[in-house]
């Protein structure tokens, strides 16, 4: 396969897209709707009526002077130290930070504890994030990692907004592909194109890339305003910036492009059977159904929307892409196009 031939087709397609107002509308309006309007509409009412936050992290004014990694400390005091993977026993600690540490029989004050376990200790006026306590007291401290039911619900809604970022690169290709393939068919410009010294794969690759590149770029670009809106709206409730997180990164940078490819290829197959741009768009829209189904299942609590499921979902789409690519290659052959495309 000669990539330069495909790239010539990509550039020609871009020239045509720039002249097509429907394609331009879909490239600009769809992201604005999905990445700006809908997150705002979903989240603003929740933040407006939510209880004012009581769980801002405490401003502790910690000034770290030393870092310790993987040691065992006992029977002493510590101040202004950042501990990683450290076991502390029978210690008095003041203005320190803990990451993945174990604290036993100790007194901790004015400190930040992240992903640590506290046993039989007193933790006073500190921030505890994703940390667990056993037989301990925590006067004046905040548990930031744990979520109330309403916070859990809010996080679920935020994660479900990811669906729109999978839908953007799935819907835009239905519009572009309908003009790219069906439009070319209606215009009867396929025959001279097929008469050029290019292979079927080069032509399909060129057409596919021309649709894939703007669809995915627009999706990625629209991630920024969406993250800003979500974080601005939800920070007062959650007390931390929830986006970007790993689920969204996997969704936007792994699942969304795969969905885009699926959408393009499905539209190639549909284009072979229809001779009207609108019909092609309507039938092509069915490609969004697996994404919607997945997120409905997640919202219903049947599966937990986490990194593992997102990766599995992406892998499933990848497998479908490969099958559909094979079918599209068979459909996108000169003979098929000239003889059977109606």
């Amino acid at each position: 396969m000669r990539f330069e031939k495909s790239w010539i087709i990509v550039r020609k397609e871009f020239s045509e897209f720039r002249k097509n107002k429907y394609i331009l509308y879909s490239l600009f309006l769809m992201p604005i709707l999905m990445a700006v309007v809908l997150p705002t509409v979903y989240l603003v009412p929740i933040s407006t009526f939510a209880t004012p936050p009581a769980n801002h992290p405490l401003d502790l004014g910690i000034s770290i002077v030393q870092e310790l990694q993987g040691s065992n400390l006992s029977n002493g005091t510590a101040e202004n130290i950042r501990f990683f993977n450290t076991n502390l026993d029978n210690m008095i600690v003041y203005k320190c930070e803990f990451f993945n540490c174990s604290i036993v029989n100790s007194v901790v004050r004015d400190s930040n504890l992240t992903s640590s376990t506290i046993t039989n200790s007193v933790v006073e006026h500190s921030n505890l994030r994703f940390s667990a306590t056993t037989d301990s007291s925590t006067p004046g401290s905040l548990f930031l990692g744990s979520q109330s039911e309403s916070e859990k619900y809010l996080v679920l809604i935020i994660d479900s907004l990811l669906m729109f970022f999978v839908l953007i690169p799935a819907i835009i290709p239905t519009v572009i592909a309908s003009y790219s393939f069906v439009g070319e068919k209606l215009n009867k410009s396929l025959e001279p194109l097929l008469a050029t010294p290019t292979s079927d794969t080069e032509l399909l690759m060129g057409k596919t890339l021309a649709i894939f590149i703007p669809s995915v770029l627009v999706t990625w670009i629209s991630l920024l305003p969406a993250v800003i809106i979500v974080d601005l709206v939800t920070y007062p409730i959650l007390g931390y910036y929830i986006l970007p997180n790993m689920i969204w990164i996997i969704g936007v940078f792994f699942v969304a492009p795969l969905f885009c490819i699926l959408s393009v290829l499905v539209n190639v197959i549909i284009s072979a059977r229809v001779s009207d741009v609108r019909t092609s768009q309507q039938i092509g829209s069915i490609v969004v159904l697996p994404a919607i189904a997945f997120f409905i299942v997640a919202l219903a609590g049947i599966v937990v929307l986490n990194e593992v499921y997102m990766l599995l979902f992406g892998t499933a789409i990848l497998a479908i892409d490969l099958v559909v690519f094979y079918v599209a290659l068979r459909v996108f052959q000169r003979e098929e196009i000239l003889v059977k495309w109606k």
Binding site: K19, N20, N187, K188, S189, E191, A195, T196, T198
Partner: peptide, 21 residues
């Protein structure tokens, strides 16, 4: 096929131009 297509020029029944270009 590719070699043959590079040696021929085809004018199909319909001009099939890219009308917006």
């Amino acid at each position: 096929h590719i070699k043959i297509r590079s040696m021929i020029g085809l004018l199909p029944e319909n001009p099939g131009m890219y009308e917006s270009l």
